[in-house]
């Protein structure tokens, strides 16, 4: 990718010499920096939202009987087998101005003008959260599942409230799972280009869209490679950060 990114674009894709570093200076143009920051923000919000929904869900499942745990885990994985485009299109039907949610709110008289939900960054975040939620729930569930039940019971016996035992026992011990969940959701969200296109209406451009468009539409492979390189660098930094923090957490535990 590094090699590609310093070449010159061919007329119909492909690459030519001479070698130059123009693409890197072009990539630091304020428009593109804005796109990269915006992508980080959207992917970050997706990861946090997934955590807020995923952790309580995983906690709830881990406290159930073995039989119900299996049933619920299967219920979470099952929709994942549906093609993700189909699941994304479902949000189009739900969110659009003439869609089910807006029609319902209008019929019960709560609003008289449709709320604009589709083709916004919010729609992109919601769509990706839905898409990647199982990737958050499963590692947290696995971590919570491994915690010795006696530890929480001991905390109760020693006078901890439910909240305190959660804060001092369950969350720290589940931390490696939480970190993995965050990475699992953040990484594919950052590179996603289908959801921004469908639910963002092509107006919310993320770094994945830039890479795709440079290769397929603009046929500027070197510039596309430059963004792919930037994307990869961000991910490498994040993953090494995650493994570092994870190790520290394990040592402390």
């Amino acid at each position: 990718m590094l090699f590609m990114s310093v070449l010159t674009a061919g007329r119909f894709g492909g690459v030519n010499t001479p070698i130059n570093f123009d693409n890197f200076s072009r990539a630091t143009d304020s428009i593109f920096v804005q796109v990269i920051l915006n992508s980080l923000l959207i992917a970050g919000a997706t990861a946090i939202l997934s955590l807020l929904i995923g952790f309580p869900t995983a906690l709830f499942i881990s406290r159930l009987s073995r039989k119900w745990q299996i049933i619920l885990i299967v219920a979470i994985i099952l929709p994942y087998w549906t093609n993700f485009l189909v699941r994304t299109y479902a949000w189009l039907v739900l969110l659009n101005n003439e869609g089910i949610i807006n029609k319902f709110l209008r019929n019960i008289g709560l609003i008289d003008k449709p709320i604009e939900m589709l083709y916004t960054s919010g729609a992109v975040i919601v769509g990706m959260t839905y898409l990647y939620l199982p990737l958050m729930i499963l590692p947290i569930y696995a971590a919570l599942e491994k915690i010795d039940k006696n530890l929480t019971e001991a905390a109760y016996d020693l006078g901890s409230s439910a909240w305190k035992s959660l804060r001092t026992v369950s969350i720290p011990l589940a931390m490696p799972g939480i970190l993995i969940g965050l990475i699992f959701v953040f990484v594919p969200s950052l590179g996603n280009f289908v959801v921004p296109e469908l639910l963002g209406g092509g107006k919310t451009v993320m770094i994945g869209n830039l890479v795709r468009d440079q290769f397929l539409k603009a046929r500027d492979w070197p510039f596309g490679a430059t963004f792919a390189l930037i994307l990869t660098l961000i991910l490498v930094i994040l993953i090494s950060l995650q493994s570092y923090v994870s190790k520290r957490v394990n040592i402390n535990a």
């Binding site: 428009i31 107006k203 451009v205 468009d213 539409k217 603009a218 046929r219």
Partner: peptide, 11 residues
């Protein structure tokens, strides 16, 4: 034109 389109849609 490809640069124009990239810059408009990314703005």
């Amino acid at each position: 034109y490809t640069d124009l389109a990239t810059e408009v849609t990314s703005s």
